[in-house]
Amino acid sequence: MTRNLLSVRTGPAAGAGPVRRPGRTFPSRRGIATRARLATASMVLPALALFVVMIVIPVGLSVYLSLTDWDGYSADPGFVGLGNYFRLFRVSEVLTAAVTTLIIAGAGTVLLNALGLGFAMLVHRKSRLNSTFRAVLFYPHVLSALVVGFLWSALLGTTGVVNTFVTEAGGEVLPFLSDPTWARTTLIGVIVWFGFGVNLVLYIAGLQTVPQDLVEAAQIDGASRWQTFRHLTLPSLAPVVTVNIVLSLVTLLKTYDIVVSLTGGGPAGSTQTAAYLILSDSFGNSALGFGSAQSVVLMVVTGLLALTVSRLRAGADEAVAK
């Protein structure tokens, strides 16, 4: 999409090519090939090595540990086969966390994208006011999720700022964080408040690529705003929508920091997410094998969901490419 932009930029740089060195002796063909191969290797291998050591090996380790009952520090892990995986379905805490995570990911993805796209439509035109407004919508993302969680828990806790205000005014305490349904709703609300600015920015960037002349032409032809949006804007935004959905989904499936600081997983464990449970089970309960089994499942589910969404959206994306 930035292709045309880019070609403009590449113009002058192309002229400023490297300096020619006259009188240079050329090595043999074979020498060149070897040197080129070495050079390529030196470009690929450092990144690949780091990726393998820090990501591929740990993933493998996770899979291995998930087949053991290791506590994390004793001498040797006992092999338990798929026992940990079968246990996943019997431990109600894990099932609750799975439901909570899916609710957060589902509702969160819808809200982040609806608000992101909605506000993008509202403020994508260039103006001073719009750019200030964008900054106002985006700023929570600059704070860390941990800070945001602590802040909202101070505001919404049972003895927090809002509830003290409400009770002083004669009202009943609002169970923002003390009732499971309320707490999950509050959690999603805070996540959306914290994060939809990012989606907004991505959608605005996408909207810049919608051909404005077509939009204007459509409006001159008497198309309603909705029709223009539905048949012109949205289809040409398709790849941006896909990126946004996948990004939101992947991010929300690993929700952790905000749970730690906002609800601590409570009340009664109702806001524990998969990532929260993995970290607390693995070390906190000295159940590394069981935690690893949860990790592996979360990883597979995340991958599958992201792939499914990309597949489902492939048609829409291709339509734009043509």
Partner: peptide, 12 residues
Amino acid sequence: GTFIPSQVLLIP
């Protein structure tokens, strides 16, 4: 790698 939640990696 983009689909691997970092918390999953953290322990190993």
